[in-house]
């Protein structure tokens, strides 16, 4: 079966495009870095791809708010293409700046479970960390096992780095959160690694640096109501191999004992990308 074609956006200050393409390729995807303007100008069509990734970076320098200017370009120029992409059941991931872009275009969290397809209305935001600082540090995440998110199936907990200055997830009211929670869309949360695996998730704000940014309800990532569109601030692609985990010289880097691509060295982050590739193959 042909490998699922993955469009990895780049240009205008996106800067995790190389590694994001690489991790899809490691798990059987056929990833291509495509400049945003190639879609906007119609040189290329999103229809030709089965997965879309919006990688991390500093699109337009994050001036006027992270992800906003790239989000605007996509919201105004790619509205129909993006709507059709989700309607066709194709997965989208936004990582870090990509998550910010998806939130500012309104793709995340999206409307509601009854009318799940994109309406491009912004309902949430990612704002400056409470610390006021951009930081690169490792965090521990847990995932909602009941989430419709196709990206996180079967994953309980991973360690990976956050690298952002604007990762605090906010929504205007608690009812907004409750609605998302009811639909299990609060997919990824920062957790205290000393808690037993599977018991880390809590709505009560965790102290810095367990929660690196003061995110409401410790939210690290959310999905839309279809479960196809997923965004998160931390970088799972940055721990595709155990040798990238800070504990690897301590011989205690977590991850699967074996894998077909990296032997005993596969890192915890790779499964997220494998899930999407397998989802596409399973739904052909």
């Amino acid at each position: 079966m042909a490998a699922p074609k993955v469009a990895v956006l780049f240009g205008f200050g996106i800067n995790c495009d190389h590694e994001t393409a690489a991790v899809f390729n490691l798990v059987g995807g056929d990833a291509e870095r495509v400049h945003v303007n190639n879609f906007i100008l119609g040189n290329r069509s999103l229809d030709d791809f089965e997965i879309l990734a919006v990688p991390g970076g500093f699109s337009f320098g994050d001036h006027l708010g992270s992800g906003r200017l790239l989000g605007n370009r996509m919201r105004f120029a790619l509205r129909e293409q993006l709507h059709a992409f989700v309607a066709a059941g194709k997965p989208i991931i936004g990582i870090c700046n990509g998550f910010q872009v998806l939130v500012k275009t309104g793709l995340l969290p999206g409307p509601n479970a009854q009318t799940p397809l994109p309406d491009f209305v912004q309902r949430a935001s990612l704002t400056l960390n409470d610390s006021g600082r951009y930081e690169d540090r490792w965090v521990t995440l847990e995932f909602d096992a009941n989430s419709p998110c196709i990206w996180t199936k079967g994953i309980q907990r991973i360690d990976c780095p956050v690298r952002h200055g604007e990762g605090k997830f906010v929504m205007p009211s608690t009812t907004d959160f409750d609605a998302l929670a009811a639909n299990n869309q609060l997919t990824a949360r920062y957790v205290d690694p000393s808690k037993p695996i599977g018991q880390g998730m809590t709505d009560k704000p965790l102290p810095f640096p367990l929660s690196p940014n003061g995110s409401m309800r410790n939210i690290a990532g959310i999905c839309d109501a279809t479960g196809l569109v997923f965004g998160l601030m931390p970088h799972p692609e940055a721990v595709y191999a155990k040798w990238l985990h800070p504990d690897h010289t301590r011989k205690s880097a977590p991850g699967p004992p074996t894998s077909d691509v990296l032997g005993e060295w596969e890192g915890e982050g790779l499964q997220i990308f494998r899930n999407a590739v397998e989802y596409v193959l399973g739904n052909r």
Binding site: C16, V23, D136, R163, H235, Y240, L244
Partner: peptide, 11 residues
């Protein structure tokens, strides 16, 4: 810590 030391997923 305020420098990104891990972008490119190689560090």
């Amino acid at each position: 810590r305020q420098y990104d030391h891990e972008v490119i997923a190689q560090t």
